[in-house]
Nucleic acid binder design. Structure first.
Lengths: 192, 192
DNA sequence: TTCATTTCTTAACTTAAGTGAACGAGTTGT
DNA sequence: ACAACTCGTTCACTTAAGTTAAGAAATGAA
């Protein structure tokens, strides 16, 4: 379990055994059941998440409707904006599968960053890389139609289509569930 | 001019005169004319931009059409994804006004980050903050209609509507120029 | 297993965005 | 001043997404 994390981290910085032990000295590994809510709207939080196995999603609730905006699966990290801005959360974070993840605290991170520049380098690289990915994602979203977005998802994250309910996928694609049904029908129609 | 930059930086870390001089020892301030292309599709680059005054935009070209995805104005920083991934750029960056900006090189940043942990802290905080902003932006985009997006823009970045051509705004909002015209007509219609 | 609830799909209708074409206003270059 | 462009808007038409409602399929709990 620790190895999944350290293998991932080794892509960014090389860690000594001592440094690994410092990380392990915090109690960051958690196993959470499907349906567990990790963060609620209105709540203040200092927790960041890194998914080792499973899937978590972020969603807003307005007009009695869930609006799912992101999924985080294996090897993906989420620091909710509210942790950065230190304001109450605008959204919910929940597990859509039994999930194994690390939960780290921003105070703890600040402390470790302070003592070990190497961790700060890791954090910087990770967030730079995530920002770059996010920008490209957003650009693709803006410049394509719902149908193209669905086809794009089929190509890039086919697992999501299997493991996530359609109504959550729909808002992730920026459309209503009924429209997603039609998009799917249209596509299978074309393919025969 | 330097002061604009240092005032901005002081929000994240406090700098000594010596550290400021190190920054100034690199030739980072540039004044560029409207229309200048800072980065072309297919080009490799190590440059990040920070806008002191003016406005730059990022856009893709496909099917002989420009697709504008972002604008960066005063106090906003852009590190194109290609700089992070070290691959040829997918898009163009150009100035839509006479612009005063800093251009920094990722090699130079790596060097300074290495010598002065404080700079690395600055970079980390900046990219964490930008990632959080970007996430919220993307979420808002996903969960709203073109009309709501336009109204949202009107509220949050009214200056853009004045300083940017409509056809660029349109793709920024994920629609065609003709649709933006209609959205605007619809809104002024409602307001009387 | 059965019943209740949730999720997905289909259909009919409404609303808005995409498309192609035309027009006028404003700009640029000669 | 004039021609050539660019840009924003409008129009008519097409296509797709939103909405409302109903029913089928899947899921979960008793």
């Amino acid at each position: 379990m620790e190895n999944i994390l350290f293998d991932f981290m080794s892509k960014y910085v090389s860690l000594t055994e001592e440094e690994k032990n410092i990380i392990l000295s915090f109690d960051i590994f958690h196993s959470v059941k499907k349906g567990t809510i990790l963060l609620k709207e209105g709540q203040k939080s200092k927790s960041s998440y890194f998914v080792l196995k499973g899937c978590i999603r972020t969603y807003y609730v307005s007009d009695n409707e869930e609006k799912t905006t992101a999924f985080y699966t294996e090897m993906e990290a989420l620091t909710p904006p509210c942790v950065i801005t230190q304001t109450p959360s605008e959204y919910y974070v929940s597990c859509i599968e039994d999930t194994l993840l690390t939960i780290s605290n921003s105070d703890m991170e600040a402390e470790v960053n302070d003592k070990f520049p190497k961790f700060e380098t890791l954090c910087r690289k990770l967030s730079e890389e995530n920002l770059a990915k996010q920008q490209i994602n957003f650009d693709e979203f803006k410049t394509s139609s719902p149908e193209q977005r669905y086809l794009n998802l089929l190509e890039k994250r086919p697992d999501l289509i299997q493991r996530v309910p359609q109504y959550q996928l729909a808002s992730y694609l920026g459309i209503k569930p009924e429209s997603l049904s039609r998009v799917r029908a249209r596509i299978t129609e074309k393919n025969k």
